[in-house]
Design a protein around this nucleic acid. Structure first.
Lengths: 251, 251
DNA sequence: CGGGTGCTTGATCTCTATCAACTGGTGTGG
DNA sequence: CCACACCAGTTGATAGAGATCAAGCACCCG
């Protein structure tokens, strides 16, 4: 327990913001057996091609999922913060096809894959909630693919900044338009498919354009509308509208 | 019905190759009400940002999912062939975040999203089967992100060719190492994040290296091992091992 | 036979990578 | 409290990968 709260509540809050759960479903989730673990910065907590048996939930911190190419170059697939179930897919996947690594000191909860599956059998609401969560995951991957494949450098970096801003805002880690990026330029580069040097120059361009300002890793979005236009950022892909609810009147 | 078979069987075969279903679950699926539709080549069958109410199943043909950037450039996210449920995610997603378009004359089945959801409530096996299907979907997106973000041009094109070869092989559309690519170089380019001209030159390089040969759109993989090495292609990401099965002996 | 579509080729230019050096902040130990 | 090391960020110079533009070719189909 962190400050008296059940550390599973972060994820619950995220799920219930999309669609409230029944009391039973909520209790069953909170009763899950978990292992809490703390990692230092830059620890690999799941390795590529490793057999899976546990899912990871970020309680507090920042991690990324990534894949590498034989030459050693890395592509980051996603960033995750407080309350994210990082590799929910492991519930059904027998072997991990990517690594997971911390970007700051991070507290993680490990949950048995089998327990997750059992939860979906006992509570169909959870089957839908988890499925929807991985659907949103996939939607974000599609957007990133567009980012890396078809946007110019400045747009790519701008888009990533907006997504991170968006995610941090939801968990209360922003102060108006100001927030602290827990990620180095090297890692930003690996997320947008550029070199570190070019990422740096793209950030400078964003500053010159008056879009952002930053001191160290503290960023301020100075022109949100301008950023959105420049990065063609449309939060639809994050699907804040939540899942479809089955109409009980259908035949 | 196409030649006496229920057109839903293509998807059933794919799902059961991963894990057999109970007779009841199979029957319930085959009893789904569907609309069959036939599209010409290059028809947009789902538009970006459109509200969703039906899922699409490809009976026979080839379609892609894609996103566009305001300047009009297109990023293809995936290709789908016979027996693929293209936008299964629409079952829970209220609005589509990408388009779907045919690359050859294609027969499609439309299934009510609500019917899909009902199926998951009546048969938890289906909840897992669909969830696993979208998990594999997401895994492929991650691999494509790596492809577009971190592989050199020749590797990118090679990787895509191998994936398509792999998919066509599973549905019996190959003859040894020979197969017909139902996709133009323009569209290949949109899938790997290159220009059409550069994609063409990468294909030429693959030929010069003795990796492939092709007449028109009929390709032959001449050196499978070489291709795999050059494209760092490892089919793990397609997850042929199938889903985890819940151990009934757990506590 | 004409016209469309997709493939191929050449020339040129731009964007991004690479390599290398330098700066500035932070933390640590003497 | 200073010296030093270390790391992230910044800058410059240069090379190379890939984009763009433009033209020509080949095949298919009406």
């Amino acid at each position: 327990m962190v400050d008296g709260r059940n550390p599973l509540e972060g994820y619950l809050t995220k799920i219930e913001a999309r669609r409230p759960l029944s009391g039973k479903a909520r209790d069953a989730f909170l009763a899950l057996r978990v292992n809490s673990e703390h990692y230092d910065i830059y620890r690999e907590i799941v390795r590529e091609d490793e057999p899976t048996s546990m899912c990871c939930l970020v309680v507090q911190g920042c991690v990324s999922r990534f894949k590498t190419v034989p030459s050693g170059e890395r592509q980051i697939n996603s960033f995750h913060f407080d309350g994210d179930m990082v590799d929910l897919q492991s519930a059904l996947l027998l072997v991990s096809d990517h690594g997971i690594r911390t970007h700051s000191p991070t507290t993680v909860l490990r949950i048995e894959c089998n327990a997750i599956l059992q939860l979906t059998l006992d509570h169909p609401e959870w089957a839908h909630a988890f499925w929807f969560d991985t659907i949103v995951d996939a939607a974000i991957f599609r957007e990133w693919m567009l980012n890396v494949g078809r946007r110019a450098a400045v747009g790519r970096v701008g888009h990533l900044i907006l997504e991170i801003f968006h995610k941090l805002e939801r968990i209360g880690r922003t102060d108006q338009y100001k927030f602290t990026m827990p990620i180095t330029q090297n890692d930003l580069a690996d997320a947008v498919g550029l070199s570190a040097v070019h990422t740096n120059r793209s950030l400078q361009q964003l500053r010159e354009l008056g879009m952002i300002s930053s001191i160290g890793r503290t960023f301020v979005i100075e022109d949100l509308a301008g950023m959105k236009r420049l990065a063609s950022f449309d939060p639809t892909y994050l699907h804040p509208e939540g899942p479809r609810v089955l109409d009980p009147n259908r035949s």
